[in-house]
Nucleic acid binder design. Structure first.
Lengths: 343, 343
DNA sequence: TTGAAAGCGCTAACAA
DNA sequence: TTGTTAGCGCTTTCAA
């Protein structure tokens, strides 16, 4: 930087001002141009560590994900990356594997790296770490899941509408014995979708005994498979299943095969999320499409907004606003009319 | 840090020494303990920007990937993350979308963030950016793909053996008209697998006319589908296909369906990589399993080694060593004996 | 074994 | 509009 200043024949402070978009207005246009030329010529790259040290901002955002290997999250990460990069920020991804201790470690490591804020996709309904983080005042935006205490801005797909769409689709096909394979009830997505399911079947005049809810202990294929067996043992007359997400639905598919049940001829199945390759399952899965890239992008936008206000006016009262992105039902081959009665 | 030093009753330089594992040997054991207690008590986190500024190292590594959304790369990223974190480093992931300009931008952005080195999964056989990077001396390790100029250490699955396994499996089932849907020949994986294919069929005494190679213009479902149609137009008597990767194989599956061909009854198909959900395809895909997590982990290990040597003795002659991890064939339902002759 | 002091590269308050 | 100066928090050389 001194070299650039020297080459341009100005003081390094002036060079700094010229090179920084937010302060380049303070400098003579001609001088600024001269400095930029010099910087270009010398291939100057500002030292971000020095800048961070001085400004107390790293232009870096920590992103807490359960697991990059879950096909749900790469699109979210891409959406976040896209918006953050455009704003001059970099995302630091960290996987927590749904492990509270690991999450704490990652969170602290990220804090040590002076991240300016967090985007968190790992929220549980009760979340001590997030409660503490709230007290500390770090800017945080939640994506996909939220905590019961609505402390932070939150971006999600419109789960309730999605589940309603799924149930109505099944109803329209003639199903009257519809079950829900709910996700874990420790997560907001698990209860929101289950609640919407109950409301939708009730509205259709279907009693709880014809619309059982089984809870899968995780959003995984394995847990979904297990829960399906359990469900069908107790409710063998079920003709359709709404799964808490696509992985649970995939597990259900496995369970059906194991029981010699055909999908959709014997039993219809609807997933949730429309994750990558859901259309390659056997049969291709009818599911609720959630715009995951958009979720990430919007979450990043909210955080950037907060970060910029943070910079300008100090700590504003954080607004725990909710952004629900629209979802739609994608009908594929896993749903059909129920088998004829008594078959 | 000054606070910690004060609480422990020592100078901040001593505190620094006590807290840093590599210099804590220089300090009295009792003093060191006292300092650590104080740090704990105050919840002290060292400012990484200040450390970076002073030491000229960020303990950060840039990772260039084509696209996180391609199921190949999340496991690689996880392997990298695991090893890097254990060594006190953080990975900065960047997606290039196979776009040279975007890659350059990302690379420079990462350099601006003072990364200590790179792990690159985007290598093309000819790669100007990597040539320049080599001149500049930044530590770099290649993963999965490599350049023709073997400038950097490189970690990959044993593609040649994998392809041989695939061909031998097909041969064993009785196939004598085997085609290869090669990946782009601008990438090392594309040519290595194609070369191994040619060698394997030749060894089996099958002439080139019975073992055609069609080149897919990308490692995507779409490109694979297109290439399959092209291949089958010209070689309708093909009874088995070795695909350059699983996405190409998936495209082939689509093409077969479109042409009214059944897999594996009419045509057998082998993929490459054993990506997530390859076992959910219709039919479940026989493919060559590549240990992607291991690839990432090993690449990170090589880079860390280089980085540590770098620190200790200045710039050593970089060794362009190659590490090939073992692969294995996973037989599923997309391969079977060829249809009876004349059928 | 510890303390003193300098300085990494940048930005921002203040002065000119 | 530009220059001067101080200092962000840490590490490291040198001296004690």
């Amino acid at each position: 930087m001194s070299d650039v200043a020297a080459l341009a024949g100005v003081h390094k402070a002036t060079a700094s001002r010229a090179l920084n978009p937010s302060t380049s207005g303070l400098v003579n246009t001609a001088t600024a141009r001269r400095v930029k030329m010099a910087a270009e010529q010398l291939g100057f790259t500002p030292n971000s560590a020095a800048r961070s040290l001085r400004t107390n901002r790293s232009f870096t955002v920590g992103v807490l994900l359960p697991d990059l290997t879950n096909p749900l999250f790469p699109p979210v990460a891409r959406g976040i990356e896209e918006v953050l990069n455009a704003g001059g920020y970099t995302a630091l991804l960290a996987n927590t594997d749904n492990d509270e201790a690991k999450e704490r470690t990652q969170f602290n490591a990220l804090l040590g790296r002076q991240v300016d804020g967090f985007i968190v996709a790992t929220a549980q309904r009760e979340h001590p770490l997030l409660d503490e983080a709230y007290e500390s005042g770090v800017p945080i935006v939640l994506v996909n899941r939220c905590t019961d205490r609505r402390l932070f801005p939150w971006v999600s797909g419109d789960d309730a509408t999605g589940m309603t769409l799924a149930v109505e689709h099944l109803l329209g096909l003639g199903h009257r014995a519809i079950a829900h394979l709910a996700g874990p009830q420790t997560m907001s997505t698990g209860v929101t979708r289950a609640r919407a399911f109950r409301h939708a079947v009730e509205t259709a005049g279907i009693g709880p005994q014809s619309a059982p809810v089984a809870v899968s202990r995780a959003y995984t294929t394995q847990a979904g498979e297990y829960a399906t067996h359990e469900l069908l043992e107790r409710h063998p007359d079920t003709t359709a299943i709404c799964a808490g997400n696509d992985l649970i639905a995939l597990g259900a598919l496995h369970a059906l095969k194991a029981r010699g049940l055909r999908c959709p001829q014997d039993l219809s199945l609807v997933g949730f999320n429309d994750m990558q390759f859901a259309d390659e399952f056997q049969p291709p899965l009818t599911t609720v499409h959630v715009p995951h890239f958009g979720l990430g992008a919007e979450a990043a936008r909210l955080l950037l907004e907060r970060l910029d206000r943070y910079e300008e006016k100090g700590h504003p009262a954080p607004m725990a606003k909710t952004v629900l992105l629209p979802v739609r039902l994608v009908v594929r081959a896993s749903t059909a009319a129920p088998p004829p009665r008594g078959a």
